[in-house]
Design a protein around this nucleic acid. Structure first.
Lengths: 242, 242
DNA sequence: GCACAATATGTACTTTGGACACATTAATAA
DNA sequence: TTATTAATGTGTCCAAAGTACATATTGTGC
């Protein structure tokens, strides 16, 4: 037992022998909200074993690149996305998860507004896909997607992050539709409005919706001090549940 | 932009060139509860740059070892710990976080009962240290500890995991002391008992404390079906907070 | 047996969440 | 112009959970 243990001091001696042989990648679960559906950005894998299957966007972490920088670079390079909400979720490291060798991957999810963050026209293979209608994926990407979706559902209950999926101005109806799409449940309109009011997240813009085929609703925006980009924002001292 | 991107299909060609040069380690934040303090298992680093500073227990992930297996192996080998609660928290990957090269690390925390999980006498350099009295640590281990502690504090509010830090049988007073130690707050005894009763986590053993220098309290244990070892256990359909 | 210290329990108030009904507004069609 | 329609906007009642707070009880130890 003792001989198996690698002391820190021994790492240098064994550099580039058995241990420095792992590749680290980042996979990005990029959510958007469109047509009352929560969608995720995927493309058809060009990897031999998984040709034609949906794949998340990812890349290897560069040798001189901080881990947490990589997902931002990938979003820039692959999807032309800047200034997005981003959160690390989990690292997946089964020995055989990648056919090419030992590639472990750290999963991040991000939230983008499809209206202000248009995909570059050159990237024609990118595709927004309904999260409820995606079953088989390349590699272990389905598990990665499910893990990120689960984390997202937990997070939106207590933190004002869904606004990253909406335009600056939105109606309460749009906000409720979004919550329903993320959580996969129907919410009572009156209670939803009461709770949102109680959370004190929104500013009434005193403007109305336009070009809607029904009575226009009032427009709101997120309070400025609640705007976040992935840093954990604590709204109020957390209740003691125990 | 396009030329910088590494397609999945290209990974093989570049194997062992620029990318498969990273080492992956696991660092374990092992919590226990003793003398009304939340403690973490550390040892004095034998690493040159950090000699004498407190270090978390960790090791490199073996070439043929699943990532999630590594923390269990490390607990077995380094601390003689078996069957412990374990949860992955975060992966730290700053380029210069390790002096020996590109070593990224995935942090796990675990919860052990110090009474049933005794440290092996051979490991004399291991040390249980009060989490509130540990400031400088080797590498980025202080940040890792803080991140795990934050996660623990969030988790115990909704999930019955603190029982992994207690013996099989415990009094409500011990349980409250434990919550106070983890959360760093004082709790009202009457309200605490009410909420714990409401959660319906406990079984009244109809036994009393013994050998206490005051009136003995009743003993309880966790309901069998709530015993967990790191798998996420959902107690009931989560309330919709929005 | 008496003081002490910790256990055990209950009540009133407040806050939050959930079920539910009705009036109002603007677009649209008759 | 008017009636219809479909969505917005608001309020009430009740249940559940959280918080503040007081008193009786039991065993220890002097």
């Amino acid at each position: 037992m003792q001989k198996m243990r690698l002391k820190n001091a021994e790492i240098e001696k064994r550099t580039h022998l058995e241990f420095f042989k792992i590749a680290l990648s980042v996979d990005c679960v990029i959510f958007c909200y469109d047509k009352k559906q929560l969608k995720v950005l995927v493309f058809e894998s060009d990897f031999e074993e998984y040709a034609g299957m949906w794949s998340l966007i990812g890349d290897l972490v560069q040798p001189e690149e901080d881990l947490e920088e990589a997902p931002y670079r990938i979003l820039r390079e692959r999807a032309g996305l800047h200034d997005v909400y981003m959160e690390q979720v989990h690292t997946f490291g089964h020995v055989d998860r990648h056919p090419s060798g030992r590639v472990i991957t750290t999963a991040y999810y991000s939230l983008v507004d499809i209206k202000t963050h248009k995909l570059p026209p050159s990237e024609t293979n990118l595709h927004w896909h309904d999260v409820n209608d995606i079953h088989k994926m390349a590699f272990d990407h389905k598990m990665i997607l499910d893990t990120c979706l689960k984390r997202l559902r937990e997070k939106v209950l207590e933190h004002p992050i869904v606004f990253n999926l909406l335009p600056e101005k939105f109606s309460l109806r749009e906000l409720q539709d979004l919550y329903e799409a993320i959580l996969g449940v129907d919410l009572d309109r009156r209670n939803f409005r009461k709770r949102i009011t109680l959370k004190n997240w929104l500013v009434d813009l005193n403007e109305m919706e336009e070009d809607v085929p029904h009575r226009p609703g009032k427009l709101y925006k997120l309070k400025n001090q609640l705007k976040s980009n992935g840093k954990n924002l604590r709204l109020k001292p957390q209740k003691l549940a125990v």
